[in-house]
Nucleic acid binder design. Structure first.
Lengths: 107, 107
DNA sequence: ACTTAAGGTAAGCATTAGCTTACGGTTAGC
DNA sequence: GCTAACCGTAAGCTAATGCTTACCTTAAGT
């Protein structure tokens, strides 16, 4: 019902791609420019640019102009929405786990 | 480096699909059989079966035979791997957020 | 034994999505 | 002003994937 839950879908879909995760993990070490990110990745720079656009619209990264370069960094907002979405199921998961270790029911 | 981090990829990819999220959310209310899950979803039962296989191999759900029916329920393991993967970036995200509110650099 | 219910699997199809090449726009430096 | 660096966008192609129909197996009920 929350607005955060809605685009938790976008954040999950964004991090589902391996290349996008690589970019995201790379940004975890600190802010970087697009060309710097593309350097060392097995894809071309335009591909990285497209991936960054997806990550940005999912609230996972932020960009910032710096002359002719654009500096990207991790945006905490996207991580927060995913975490909030996961917490929604934490109770159910714990209940399931509790039933398992107790082993009283069903067997 | 952890084994949990490796198949965090599978868990994220599994939850990236909207139908699979619907199934997962439906299971959060309690264990259900396949046909029961398919009832009310806009896809056919075999599609649900395939989705459940993906969720299962990602460690997100567990199944259990009950006569001619199979009861699926949420597996906490999959949620744990995602959470562990997310926590890996929590520090970086907080550092980024900290730089933002301080606003000393860059402006 | 026969029938019915329940569900996994195979084959095939249509859509999506990631990648590349090519191009255009903006800023720094000479 | 001109050139070079940096980056986003468009167009097009290929591979992946989600869905359906059809089939087969297993278990329960009569």
């Amino acid at each position: 019902m929350n607005a955060a839950m809605i685009d938790a879908a976008a954040a999950l879909a964004a991090l589902a791609d391996p290349t996008r995760r690589q970019i995201f993990e790379r940004l975890a070490t600190g802010p970087r420019a697009v060309g710097d990110i593309a350097r060392g990745l097995p894809v071309t720079r335009p591909a990285v640019s497209q991936h960054l656009a997806v990550l940005k619209s999912a609230g996972l990264v932020k960009d910032q102009a710096a002359g002719t370069r654009r500096i990207y960094e991790i945006d905490p907002k996207g991580l927060g929405t995913i975490r909030a979405w996961l917490d929604q199921f934490w109770d159910s998961a714990l209940a399931s786990f509790k039933d398992e270790v107790e082993g009283t029911k069903g067997k």
